[in-house]
Simulated assay, not measured.
Amino acid sequence: MRELFRAERLPVLQNRTYETAAAAHASPTGDVVLVQDPQTGLVFNAAFDPSKLSYDADYQNEQACSGVFRQHLDSVAAIVDRYLAGRTLIEVGCGKGAFLELLRERGYAITGIDPAYEGENPDVIKAPFEAGLGLSAEGVVMRHVLEHMQDPLSFLNAIATANGGRGIAYIEVPCLDWICAHRAWFDIFYEHVNYFRLVDFDRMFGRVIDRGHVFGGQYLYAMVNMATLRAPRASAQDLIDLPGDFMAGVERAGALAGGAARRNAIWGAASKGVIFATHLMRRGVTFDVAIDINPAKQGRYLPVTALRVASAAEGAALLAPGDNVFVMNSNYLDEIITQSNNAYSYITVDHEQLL
């Protein structure tokens, strides 16, 4: 195996929040050792231990509170419509059910599966996927699931087998090429075992019906024929290395946070924000608050750093005009500026721009 990247003691579930600061400080951690298998070309965390992870109601990864993200879901639904309109669907890993409900509104007969589901839809099974559930459909949706599976090929094979070896699948995952190009060290998470590129899906499936990028290039998608799943084989051209200056942004962000007599806030208390805060606070940088518009996160504490999550209104009461707001995802920048009345100095961490 070729080692690409190493980070120690990251939160094992960066989207799990805690009721008290003490519980957050004591939250479990794990190491990340990214390697590439030269035979398959796949990139994964060789130090991953699945026994550390437990998805429950305290795991909050709902992004549909944002209008920007809802627009993304609409664009994904349009891709699904293009190939699966009128067909029965299963959504594996439906989360809190936002995309599932969107597809139901568009007329799909769809069953969801997710152990962290909190709603009351009788067509959602609150459990991990397994073949014994006896589910089958003409199409399968897997949005941000495959990166969590320790053995993605076996997981895909289990779904294909449970579905009678048939079906078209829409798969969406974070894009490793985008992470490398943007030096997005804050996008390396413990619970993401795998890191994919478009070429990986060309190798894993004999027929890729459609493929591309969504959400400003941060995610990639592939519409694939599940019957053509195969063991990938890599060539020398498929080998990858992370940029030599991949982690340089940590020091630059630290200098911006500590270079003036300003308060510092993180806007976006989800995965990127949690990892950003973990790296920076371990280097002595002080953050006064994390802001997030997801009500389920507000008033709770982020893992490891125990940074408290506030609403936009509460954040405004804690900050002064001109204070630093580190925007965790530039896709949301315009939305954040509007919600905060353009009162702060905004730093987009994925472009390292001060606005």
Results as ranks from 00 to 15, higher is better:
F5A: 10
V12H: 04
R16C: 08
A24C: 07
H25M: 06
S27F: 08
P28D: 13
V32S: 05
L34Q: 07
G41H: 09
L42A: 05
L42E: 02
L42G: 03
A46Y: 06
F48S: 12
D58K: 10
Q60I: 13
S66H: 04
S66C: 10
R82L: 10
L84R: 04
A85I: 00
G86I: 04
R87E: 13
T88H: 04
I90A: 03
I90Q: 03
V92H: 04
G93H: 01
G95I: 00
G97I: 01
R104V: 10
Y108P: 04
I110Y: 09
A116C: 09
Y117S: 04
D123R: 13
G132Y: 02
L133T: 01
E138Y: 10
M149S: 03
D151M: 02
P152Q: 02
P152A: 06
S154K: 11
I159Q: 01
A160V: 00
T161V: 09
N163K: 05
R166V: 01
Y170I: 02
Y170M: 05
Y170C: 04
E172F: 07
E172W: 03
V173M: 02
W178M: 07
I179E: 01
I179T: 15
A181H: 12
F189T: 00
E191D: 14
R197T: 12
V199N: 13
D200M: 02
D200W: 07
D202Q: 14
F205Y: 08
F205I: 09
V208W: 10
G212Y: 11
F215S: 09
F215D: 12
Y221F: 15
A222I: 05
P232D: 07
A234G: 08
I240V: 15
P243F: 06
G244D: 11
D245E: 12
G249E: 04
V250Y: 06
G254V: 03
A255W: 11
A255Q: 13
L256M: 14
L256F: 14
A270T: 13
K272C: 03
I275F: 00
F276E: 11
H279M: 07
Y301P: 00
Y301N: 03
V304F: 10
T305W: 05
A306T: 08
A313K: 07
G315S: 07
L318T: 12
L318Q: 14
N324W: 05
M328C: 15
N329G: 03
D334I: 03
E335N: 08
E335Q: 12
I336L: 13
N341D: 15
Y344E: 10
S345N: 15
S345D: 12
T348H: 05
T348Y: 05
